[in-house]
Design a binder for these strands. Structure first.
Lengths: 230, 230
DNA sequence: ACCTGAACACCGTTCAAGT
DNA sequence: ACCTGAACACCGTTCAAGT
């Protein structure tokens, strides 16, 4: 009743509470989770996602993170909220990948777009479960619980628009409608990604090289067109 | 003990058993499910899919079909098998839609392809949950339990190839690689479908008209190319 | 042959309680 | 403030049993 752990109640200070808890955890069995549990949960969730696919259990995530199965509810409203927060991280990486490709080809707008396409497909193929989580209808994009999801997914689209604008500035496109150009590129690249990650192209997209080849191929086809010139 | 229902055991004939069961069902409460339960389960499953989305419960499907929660196991190995059989129906409709569009434009290969694209996107947008089931990673395409799935999904791709061949016969494409042309078209159309059905384009794809407009737009962009001609 | 009902291990979520 | 443990209603699947 009068041991170290009870002191913090009377002191009523978060910092001191944490300090004592940290100290005592070195002696006793670590029962409380210290530090950023929210983040630990997301890390655990991604590990589970990669291993078991899109249908992961919140209880298992908690177990992997080393807390009780009710602890996640301190940081996320429900299971969907955790998955949305995880998807938000996926969109963040997507935006980063696209911007990195753009910066590498600042003077060659077409190569910048093809590079962005390569980054998009590569990320999707290397993280198929994450891709399915983001775009597979596991979570309703209509009902956004974690605001991060809306922000990050919007920013990813923004990154794509920046690559389009690069081309418009250099006057390389026939059309001057940035939305249309963006949507055509996005659809093409997204479609290829989804077809590969859901296993429809299992025959022709097995190695990294073949995936890159396919990406370049469909990307150039969109740029030059399929129809014969008259 | 000695009423009508027990006769069939001694007779040991399926037909007679079924006949007696049918007769008795008119008098008593219908406890057994007569006729094609397999089909009834698929109908119930699609109803549930449309209502509750991709995460449906096998028990609920059984309840909707009017049988006990273990009855489905007489017709499907497990829940995944039922979902795969349902997805197979989706691929079947896709193949039909594409072929119908092709037959409508037998002399205009480009219009045939654009029509097929329209059919594909339309079907996806009108059945978003089915689309997510087919392509969203809910079921592993790697592990096919219901053989129908493999057959029907292969046939849907076959239908697309037929539309490509129409164009090759009329010599309208720059490339002569049917696989490449097919993949470019498929990626484009599939990407647009998935972006709409997962809610990413909620702003610009609300009405049937706007969806058709977007489909035609990206389709024509692929045909003519984005880049300025030099 | 076809279906039922009890049983098991799991799940998401809530809530009173503990430190 | 942060986490736990019991409890509840649900789920997929198995199996002995019924007609």
């Amino acid at each position: 009743m009068c041991d170290v752990d009870t002191v913090y109640i009377k002191v009523d200070s978060v910092n001191i509470f944490l300090y004592i808890a940290t100290m005592s955890s070195k002696k006793k069995k670590k029962t409380y989770h210290h530090g950023d549990l929210r983040n630990s949960l997301l890390v655990a969730a991604e590990k589970e996602l990669r291993q078991k696919g899109t249908d992961i259990s919140l209880r298992e995530v908690a177990k992997v993170a080393g807390v009780s199965h009710t602890a996640p509810y301190r940081h996320f409203k429900d299971k969907t909220a955790l998955l949305q927060a995880l998807a938000a991280i996926g969109y963040q990486r997507l935006a980063e990948g696209v911007r990195a490709a753009k910066d590498q080809h600042a003077d060659e707008p077409i190569e910048a777009m093809l590079g962005a396409a390569r980054a998009y497909v590569e990320l999707a193929v290397n993280n198929p479960e994450m891709t399915q989580l983001m775009f597979g209808g596991v979570l309703d994009q209509e009902v956004i619980i974690e605001e991060d999801l809306g922000v990050c997914s919007g920013d990813a689209f923004q990154a794509l628009l920046e690559v389009v604008d690069l081309g418009l500035e250099h006057d390389v496109y026939q059309s001057d409608n940035r939305m249309e150009i963006a949507l055509a590129n996005w659809s093409m690249v997204h479609g290829l990604s989804m077809l590969i990650t859901c296993g429809q192209l299992s025959g022709e997209a097995e190695t990294d090289e073949s995936v890159q080849g396919l990406t370049r191929m469909v990307g150039e086809m969109l740029m030059t067109g399929l129809k014969k010139k008259t």
